[in-house]
């Protein structure tokens, strides 16, 4: 039908085009996954703040600065007054802290750049997870070794559900460094194990306690919830299966 030359060209074109399409599809399929496109996002912050120094070396607990995470859906970025609580004395002349001092004097907040961002059609409640004794590390990775904070986990729907379905395999139980209240005294040698989970068998016992509250195909599961407060103090909830129904996370 065609000349030999055209025939060869056509064959080459079909094979080449097919390969290009296949590669394109692969790159798009994998490249658009959150664990490729979002993980490793590490923006330069206006102030060169190091979690490695403050958490890893000085062992300041997460909640010292991110206070209010126990009560609030949003985990607050510390105010300038939190920084100045120490830095009014420590390194008071450092040029790296010039922006913090300016912010303190003028009363204008520092514009930190947001690293972890969920789509606006889902909500994530920090307080619920903290009260369920789920450590910050479960979602934020090893913050104590990061100089500049980066996104460590994909924060995709599949990733959330993995944990809601099999928490005992994935979540990190509360570590002393995160300041999460477990309702009990820390073991006596907690000081040597600040960066390790206090109570790892807490999570292992999850499946023994949970009971289904709705039909399994929509999969809302719930543990026995202790009284939310004792004498005005927030009572920690036991970790359990997270809800799987759509409205648990979606508006």
């Amino acid at each position: 039908m065609f000349s030999q030359r055209t025939d060869r060209r056509l064959k080459l074109g079909i094979i080449g085009g097919g390969t290009a399409l296949a590669i394109g599809a692969l790159v798009l399929y994998f490249g658009m996954r959150n664990d490729v496109s979002d993980v490793g996002y590490r923006p330069q912050q206006p102030v060169p703040f190091s979690h490695k120094l403050h958490v890893g070396e000085l062992q300041i607990h997460c909640q010292y600065c991110h206070a209010g995470v126990e009560q609030s859906e949003h985990s607050p970025i510390p105010t300038t007054s939190t920084c100045m609580g120490c830095h009014i004395v420590i390194k008071a002349e450092s040029p790296k802290l010039q922006l913090v001092r300016d912010s303190w004097e003028k009363g204008i907040p520092i514009q930190w750049r947001r690293v972890h961002k969920l789509p606006d059609y889902v909500h994530f409640n920090h307080a619920r997870h903290i009260r369920a004794q789920i450590d910050c590390q479960s979602c934020h990775g090893n913050v104590e070794i990061q100089g500049v904070i980066a996104q460590n986990k994909p924060l995709s729907m599949g990733w959330c559900l993995d944990c809601h379905r099999n928490p005992e395999k994935r979540i990190v139980p509360a570590r002393p460094i995160s300041g999460i209240f477990t309702g009990e005294r820390l073991p006596e040698n907690f000081r040597d194990h600040l960066f390790e989970p206090v109570n790892s068998n807490l999570v292992a016992g999850v499946s023994a306690r949970v009971r289904p509250i709705t039909s399994p195909q929509f999969g809302a599961w719930e543990t026995d919830i202790p009284k939310p407060e004792i004498a005005g103090i927030p009572h920690p909830k036991l970790p359990g299966f997270g809800p799987e129904n759509c409205s648990a996370c979606h508006y």
Binding site: H61, G179, G183, L186, A231
Partner: peptide
Amino acid sequence: PLPRTDFVLARGQNRFNTYCSP
């Protein structure tokens, strides 16, 4: 105003470790 119970002391330890220990 708080009673001195184990729970309150555990909470006290938790908050003390977080905010005071540095």
